[in-house]
Write a protein that binds this DNA or RNA. Structure first.
Length: 839
RNA sequence: GGGCGCGUAGCUCAGGGGUAGAGCACUCGCCUUACAAGCGAGUGGCCGCAGGUUCGAAACCUGCCGCGCCCACCA
């Protein structure tokens, strides 16, 4: 039995101050949130917690969504489940890479050997970054993020997250690198991972390929240039926003049904400036009402170009290189003379120069027409993406395979979404995939692709015969480790080997958080108890990345969903309803809020954000939460200060039974709400009852409860029962104040006490008794208020009429209203009260 | 262009075929032995617009308007 009574110790002046420090320490010392790994899977509730990025600071948006998860975790813990609630720190990826570079003045150079004695420069020179090996870089990352992670952990503890800190992981640590590489090697062995040389979306600043999931559109100013191509019969005019790609033009394309161009299909025209012959072709994707209805196909201006190029089997004339500049030499078949003007120029200046040249040659028809249009960017990038042909690793995700796509859509339907409509976003995304998942990145910091390539006699890598390490050797770094069967001095030599230089996309690691945290292939006993998880909580904007990629990995590796349910939280918006984010500079620092209002108050505000719904930041709600927490302290002090309840005390009075019956309904509603992840509704129902409990019931029974005898005992017993239930109903949202009050009169933690059930409450109460008596009291108060009298004013006579009056608890109403002569008259009408105040 | 969500009091939002709700704000009262960081009472609404279903619609259906988000092959 968890709920053991003890002699109450009630502070004379209860306060919220200091509760966080006190209980954070007590919970830690008592291991209240420690996962019990002896419990079988059916008794476990496992949560695949999002690992926050540690390259910055947490803001109120984090507190918001993590509080939601914590409330759910606490509910299930009280329901008797062993809650597996780990925390991870995401220290893998570009944000950390940049921070380590700037902080230590180093850069990652995977070709360098590991230096175990390396110490970063005391005074980093930002202009001359010191090259270090990947392993050294990772060690520096771990050193730098350690400070942040301490701060994060402290904040999370203060927020009251019931995380088991013994289950901590990081996304660049050994465990994560091993899991990422192991999963990749298995994908490779099953043919789900493959290498391919193909046109790829490319960020010229970071000089890496990026995946479809990392794109975003941004409105950019541009201009339509109307260009004249030269035909045998007549000129052909096309409109383009990218005249600098003229040397990359391989064809013109129009819709097959377009009368204006039908006669040109199968003929050729010559490009302006360069005079290159290009065919005029037909394709259904050409849109007659765009521009002049005929477009130039370049290799490559956008993804439609790639489609046309592939489906129409056109030649390749690539001009843009990895650095975003036009190549030094013209593509095959393009005369060097005119091209020399453009070689080495950036896209921007090449555009200017081509426009000038076209103007001079008379092939620019009219002046460029300014427009704005959406352009694809890497979400972390600052320049538009280009399309560059490169060799990359892919994992199949249904983007090129209808069968796999159908399986993944079925997984989406199998998943229990909260709120349900979020599934549409998943389906939207899966149905819109236009290629497999590109996982290789041409960066230096991250989890290395764990393969080597044999070099032929000419020293060229044989990409189709990758050498893989045994799983027992993981994690490996192919840039410093030597593949099986080779020696270190064969690196880079003909007949030797070369390590794959790339690292994996950060999502290739994050998509394995269930496996990483759960001990996959590392602690199979643990994994069997937590996987598949019960819950993935996350924000709705990363359904296409984190959620989807995690589903893909689990489907491929385990043939199952990674979790039963996904709970999507909304964003925090600033008061102007803009998304709150660091880059917008509108971030509110959570630690100040927690200090000023207390953690429970901030959690209360967070819990008022419904699942999936964006919520404006509002200190008003926080203040209400603080008021609620203080009210809980005071009401509890009153209830527990009323004196002893005899062991055999029974709840006998109809008003007391009515209150408990109403509470019983609240227990049902709150429980059902929490089962559906609707912590907001659970809180709202509990809170509404609690205020009525304070305002009406407490006032009505106060006088009786102060007295002696069975009626007083009934009131005290009912009050204590209600308090016990209410504290437990509030505990998931307000863990500090509920634990404080619980400690006044109970042993153990409220957070491991059993969630209230209706069977605890006596049957047979009629909630209408409380409703009618409360309504009558309100009307008495109204009369006093209108008379501008004190609530203590004596009433010499009151007559209550109405349909429900016989349910009214007469002595309680008389005492609470200070009514000397109270008459109840049954009448078929709404309840009214005539009040005569004493002179 | 496709999809999803949202339009209810000044603000933030609940409700979801049967009398229009809460908190905040505002107004007026009250030192009341749990709480003045409190308590009591009150003012305030074409429930986005237009049709339809129904005895009855804020709710259900259709269309439209507005806002937000997600997605899209945006020359």
């Amino acid at each position: 039995m968890t709920e053991q009574p003890r002699t109450p110790h009630i502070p004379s002046k209860p306060s919220l101050d200091g509760l966080e420090d006190k209980w954070v320490r007590a919970w830690d010392d008592g291991g209240v949130y420690r996962f019990d790994r002896t419990r079988p899977r059916g008794e476990v509730y496992s949560i695949d917690t999002p690992p926050p990025t540690v390259s910055g600071s947490l803001h109120v948006g984090h507190v918001f969504s993590y509080t939601h998860t914590d409330a759910v975790a606490r509910f299930h813990r009280m329901r008797g489940r062993a809650v597996f609630y780990p925390m991870g720190w995401d220290d893998n990826g570009l944000p950390t890479e940049r921070r380590v570079q700037n902080h230590f003045g180093v850069r990652c150079d995977p070709s360098l050997p590991y230096d175990p004695d390396f110490e970063p420069p005391a005074k980093p020179d930002p202009k001359r970054q010191l090259p270090v090996s990947r392993r050294n870089f990772i060690e520096l990352c771990e050193r730098l993020t350690e400070v942040d992670e301490k701060a994060f952990e402290e904040l999370w503890r203060r927020v009251g997250l019931s995380v088991d800190w013994g289950q901590l992981y990081t996304t660049i640590g050994d465990v994560s690198r091993t899991a990422s590489q192991r999963a990749f090697l298995r994908n490779l062995a099953r043919g789900e991972a493959y290498v391919s040389e193909a046109p790829t979306l490319w960020d010229v600043t970071f000089r890496t390929a990026v995946a479809q999931a990392e794109l975003e559109d941004r409105e950019q100013p541009g201009a339509f240039y109307r260009l004249r191509f030269h035909g045998d019969e007549r000129p052909v005019y096309i409109e383009t926003t990218r005249p600098e790609l003229l040397p990359a033009c391989v064809a013109l394309v129009a819709h097959p049904d377009d009368e204006r161009y039908r006669e040109l299909f199968g003929t050729t025209v010559r490009t302006p400036l360069f005079g290159v012959e290009v065919p005029v072709v037909a394709h259904r994707l050409a849109e007659p009402d765009k521009g002049s209805g005929i477009a130039m196909i370049c290799t490559f201006g956008d993804v439609t170009d790639v489609t046309w190029w592939r489906e129409l089997d056109l030649p390749t004339r690539a001009v843009i290189g990895w650095d975003g500049r036009l190549a030094a030499d013209p593509p095959p078949g393009v005369p060097a003379g005119p091209y020399a003007e453009l070689a080495g120029k950036t896209v921007f200046s090449a555009k200017e120069r081509v426009a000038e040249l076209l103007r001079e040659s008379g092939d620019l028809d009219g002046e460029p027409r300014k427009i704005t249009r959406p352009v694809k960017f890497y979400e972390k990038g600052s320049k538009p993406l280009e399309i560059v042909t490169t060799r990359q690793w892919y994992i199949r995700n249904g983007g090129r395979d209808a069968g796999l796509r159908a399986e993944l859509l079925a997984r989406g339907r199998e998943l229990d979404w909260h709120p349900g409509y979020m599934r549409a976003r998943y389906e939207n995304w899966v149905e819109g995939l236009n290629g497999d998942w590109l996982i290789s990145r041409q960066r230096f910091f991250g989890v290395p692709i764990p393969v080597w390539y044999p070099l032929d006699e000419a020293g060229e890598p044989r990409y189709d015969e990758p050498i893989t390490p045994p799983e027992s050797a993981l994690p490996v770094d192919p840039s410093s480790d030597v593949p099986p069967g080779f020696t270190a001095d064969q690196r880079g030599r003909p007949g030797g080997f070369a390590g794959d230089p790339d690292v994996m996309d950060t999502w290739a690691t994050s998509s394995l958080t269930p496996q990483i945290a759960g001990g996959w292939e590392r602690d199979e006993d643990l994994f069997g108890r937590v996987f598949p998880y019960d819950l993935r909580p996350q924000a709705h904007d990363i359904i296409r990345t984190w959620l989807f990629s995690t589903v893909v990995r689990a489907h491929l590796e385990h043939g199952t969903l990674p979790w039963k349910a996904a709970a999507l939280s909304g964003w925090i918006l600033d008061p102007d309803r803009k998304k709150m984010s660091k880059s917008k500079g509108n971030v509110v620092t959570p630690i100040d809020l927690l200090r000023e209002y207390g953690s429970d108050a901030v959690r209360y505000w967070a819990a008022n954000g419904r699942p999936g719904t964006d919520t404006a930041f509002d200190t008003g709600q926080i203040k209400i939460g603080r008021r609620l927490a203080i009210k809980i302290l005071n009401a509890s002090k009153f209830v527990l200060g009323l004196g002893e309840v005899q062991r055999e005390a029974a709840v006998t009075e109809p008003l007391d039974k009515a209150m408990l019956a109403a509470l019983s309904n609240v227990v049902r509603e709150a429980t059902e709400a929490f089962e559906g992840y609707d912590y907001t509704r659970a809180l709202e129902r509990t809170e509404r009852f609690f205020w009525e409990f304070c305002d009406d019931y407490l006032e009505l029974v106060k006088t009786r409860a102060y007295g002696d005898g069975p009626q007083a005992q009934s009131a005290r017993a009912a009050l204590r029962t209600a308090l016990s239930v209410l504290l437990r109903l509030f505990a998931p949202i307000l863990p500090f104040v509920t634990e404080e009050v619980w400690s006044w009169w109970r042993r153990g933690s409220v957070h491991t006490a059993p969630w209230p059930v209706r069977a605890e409450l006596p049957p047979g109460g009629d909630p209408a008794v409380l409703a009618a008596t409360g309504e009558a009291l309100r009307q008495v108060r109204k009369a006093k208020s209108e008379a501008r009298a004190s609530m203590r004013a004596d009433v010499s006579r009151a007559v209550v009429r109405g349909a429900e009056v016989l349910r009214i608890s007469r002595p309680d109403l008389a005492a609470a209203g200070r009514i000397a002569d109270l008459t109840l008259e049954d009448a078929p009408a709404d309840l009214t009260v005539d009040v005569v105040l004493a002179p």
